[in-house]
């Protein structure tokens, strides 16, 4: 039973990551190859706050969000200056730079050894340390984020963000600065990724740079594109496909060593086929052009 709850926690983390990527890709039309940067920044900021500063999870979480917001501001100032493929390249560069920092800034991140002993959260004295309690805790966070999006997608800011995606020149002609709305989008995305990172760090109680690589960024982006960008259901269904695919393979008596590679092969093929035959993704609204 614990295994099912473990899968549920992983699914919740990927739903958060996919929703955060959808904010950039689906709502703003910004194809980012650096989504794992904020996931990593959130995880490391939480882990450092808990293990080095002695913060509780509830203090570490706003600390991690603050660090993500500052990073996103710098990120948006840099990447916001370029567009299309060059935006993707700028985010790719940031991904590699941040991975180098995670890996090499040993005095802070402990390099390849990572940070262990990250405390679990507590609510009213009850420690959240079992897969079941984490699944419930993660479920609450995911529900809050989905609730936020149900509200946010109806707001004028969200519509302006989508207008910037669809026709930047038209937005500009109305005297509105599109970069401002891109920046808001990048910051919202970073906050959600940071929360996912914080949840991941406190769940696994150990993090190292290998969880925040370019491959992870590609994976998060793929989840959104397969599920479909621009709507809430798209990234959620993408995360379901990614997390539940290996379980299906296990039912087919596939050895675990093969299942991991086979999952990625199927996922990669699905990505190519989606791009080729259904560019909006399974449930998507926005077509990347």
């Amino acid at each position: 039973m614990n295994y099912i709850f473990h899968i549920l926690v992983i699914l919740e983390i990927y739903i958060l990551l996919a929703l955060s990527a959808n904010q950039k890709v689906g709502l703003s039309g910004l194809l980012s190859l650096g989504q794992a940067v904020f996931y990593g920044v959130g995880a490391y900021a939480s882990a450092i706050a808990i293990t080095k500063f002695g913060f509780s999870y509830w203090l570490a979480l706003p600390f991690a969000i603050s660090v993500c917001i500052i990073t996103a501001l710098v990120f948006s100032l840099i990447a916001g200056k370029v567009r299309d493929l060059y935006f993707s390249l700028a985010t790719l560069a940031l991904q590699i730079i941040f991975f180098s920092i995670f890996y090499n800034w040993i005095s802070v991140t402990n390099g390849s050894y990572g940070i262990s002993g990250i405390a679990n959260p507590e609510i009213f004295g009850i420690k959240i340390n079992s897969p079941l309690s984490f699944a419930l805790f993660g479920g609450v966070i995911v529900s809050l984020v989905i609730g936020f999006y149900v509200w946010f997608l109806k707001t004028p800011i969200s519509r302006l963000i989508q207008a910037t995606r669809d026709d930047q020149v038209a937005v500009l002609s109305l005297g509105i600065n599109p970069n401002y709305y891109k920046r808001i989008s990048i910051i919202i995305s970073a906050i959600i990724s940071g929360v996912a990172g914080s949840l991941y760090a406190s769940y696994t109680t150990y993090i190292d740079p290998s969880s925040f690589t370019l491959d992870e960024s590609i994976l998060i982006l793929s989840i959104v594109l397969i599920g479909g960008a621009g709507r809430i259901i798209g990234p959620i269904s993408g995360a379901f496909i990614y997390v539940l695919l290996p379980e299906v393979l296990k039912f087919m008596q596939m050895p675990e060593s093969m299942a991991a590679n086979l999952r990625m092969i199927l996922f990669g093929l699905l990505l190519v086929m989606i791009v080729r035959f259904k560019p909006k993704g399974i449930f998507g609204k926005f077509l990347i052009q």
Binding site: D84, L85, L221, M264, G268, Q289
Partner: peptide, 17 residues
């Protein structure tokens, strides 16, 4: 007439495969 972002995504998928 897909743009460079589309071919980049397809290329990433191919790489993974």
């Amino acid at each position: 007439k897909s743009n460079q972002s589309i071919s980049l995504i397809a290329s990433m998928g191919l790489y993974v495969v």
